[in-house]
Design a protein around this nucleic acid. Structure first.
Lengths: 268, 268
DNA sequence: GAATTCAGAGAGCACTGCTCTCGCAACTTC
DNA sequence: GAAGTTGCGAGAGCAGTGCTCTCTGAATTC
């Protein structure tokens, strides 16, 4: 009797080949041999099933054996395709980062070019919407690190920095357009020890913003995710805040103000 | 051969009885019979070992069997004292909430009474210091929920709300002392849908602050934990921010300003 | 058609949470 | 002090996990 019952098999290989619609197929970097194509399809299936398990039961409950069962295959077979559970987590992490990045980019792009306040609002709402739609995957990205799992920086920093780069793009764009308000005269001074860090960031990303605005942008960044995390992770009490959409909208508006952005709709 | 090797036994029962120093011992609600006292000591040992494992390996890696090994006892024996792994997690959660609450209360109390800005800064630094000292336990409180584990609200809301109550106390105290600045005229209006929530909060906690300041207080709250979580969970890149203490200090100062608090040291 | 590669099966190891039974020792009651 | 009760630890066991290893057969390549 096989170790895994083999029930619940997921339609194997029925999935229509993506590049099979006429023509010699550009083939770009696509897998060439049938074996490679079958392999790529299996890997994609594993990732898809992993994503479903992740969304349903959370990252720490993600089990390669369960994925194997759903795939209609014995557990040791999936190790032909995925090095380890960690590896699968990394793949899902990258995928989630990119999905969030895509959602944010699309939301920002839908706002008129000069409406920097509106762009910031769109970015924030996109993050919150995605997080509420995919709480387990959001937790994988921004929650407590999964025990025993360390995301490989060289593979995740790229996708993982898309949101902050989008935010920086909005802020610096506003600054260059002369539409980013400087902090008031009574505003807290930027500590001297931060100057080096901020200078490095400015150089690396080719920014023009002065220290005060850069530091406030960082605050808006962490605060945005703080608000989203509190909501997704259930830190607000049971019935404390019921109008959460309005609460978030207000927080976003205040944060935009803190960052120096103009009110939404105020295009140049 | 026993299932657990029984090595690494932790000094059992050697621990000097806490209330054994002379006198008839107040005995208050303390366990009376020797059996109850031994039981209480074992439960305390389990919690202590659990705390150590939690701090070392994280919440999801907390294993009752490992605790049993360290206790020098077979795994089934710990179920005499703790209902389940969840139960132990809940005990550790409550303990951690209270430890954080104590740290915050002590830090705030060390600041002169009328120095509301200083109190806010002390609260924020206390949260950050504790979080950096106890990252795994902080993650248990404010990170992604542990999979399959739902904290029982009736036992955790009390300890879990100590920080926000301390923060509210500072803000409302400042407001009653006439030292909480109202938001500027151009400040974003509080959405109408939030009025009900804010009124309920105000009534329940006997607050005097108007909606605008209450909403900004909530923002300062979530933003504080957002900044701490980013630092503890490693969301800042590798070498992006090196002067993290200064960064946090600046964020705190801006957040105090956002909440309407006066600068630190400006006692009445 | 022969040689090679490779996917899947199955067994196995060490670990987890948790349950159940059994026997002994400590404690309580008479 | 003897008898009865309670509680605690041990041990076995179930179902699950990640991961490794070997073996077989089939697909692919030459």
């Amino acid at each position: 009797m096989p170790e895994d019952k083999g029930e619940r098999a997921v339609e194997p290989a029925v999935e229509p080949a993506v590049q099979s619609t006429g023509g010699p197929a550009p083939a770009a970097p696509g897998p060439r041999t049938p074996r490679e194509r079958a392999r790529a399809r299996t890997v994609a299936d594993i990732i898809r099933l992993g994503r479903e398990h992740l969304a349903l039961h959370g990252a720490a409950a993600l089990s390669l054996r369960a994925v194997a069962r759903d795939l209609g295959v014995v557990s040791s077979a999936v190790y032909r395709y995925v090095e380890s559970r960690e590896e699968l987590l990394t793949l899902l992490l990258i995928e989630a980062y990119n999905e969030l990045g895509d959602a944010v980019d699309a939301a920002v792009a839908a706002v008129p070019e000069g409406d920097f306040g509106g762009q910031f609002g769109a970015l924030g709402r996109a993050v919150r919407d995605w997080a509420l739609r995919e709480p387990a995957r959001y937790a994988l990205l921004f929650g407590s690190p999964v025990p025993g799992y360390q995301a490989p920086a060289e593979r995740t920093t790229g996708p993982g920095t898309r949101v902050i780069f989008a935010l920086i793009g909005i802020l610096d764009g506003a600054f260059r357009a002369g539409r980013l308000a400087a902090p008031g005269p009574g505003s807290p001074a930027v500590p001297a020890g931060l100057a080096g860090d901020l200078a490095a960031i400015r150089a690396e990303s080719g920014l023009a913003m002065p220290d005060e605005l850069l530091a406030r942008g960082a605050l808006a960044w962490t605060s945005l995710f703080g608000a989203v995390s509190f909501e997704v992770f259930g830190q607000y009490g049971e019935g404390t805040f019921t109008a959460r959409e309005e609460l978030f909208a207000h927080h976003l508006a205040v944060l935009a103000d803190v960052a120096g952005l103009p009110a939404p709709g105020a295009a140049a």
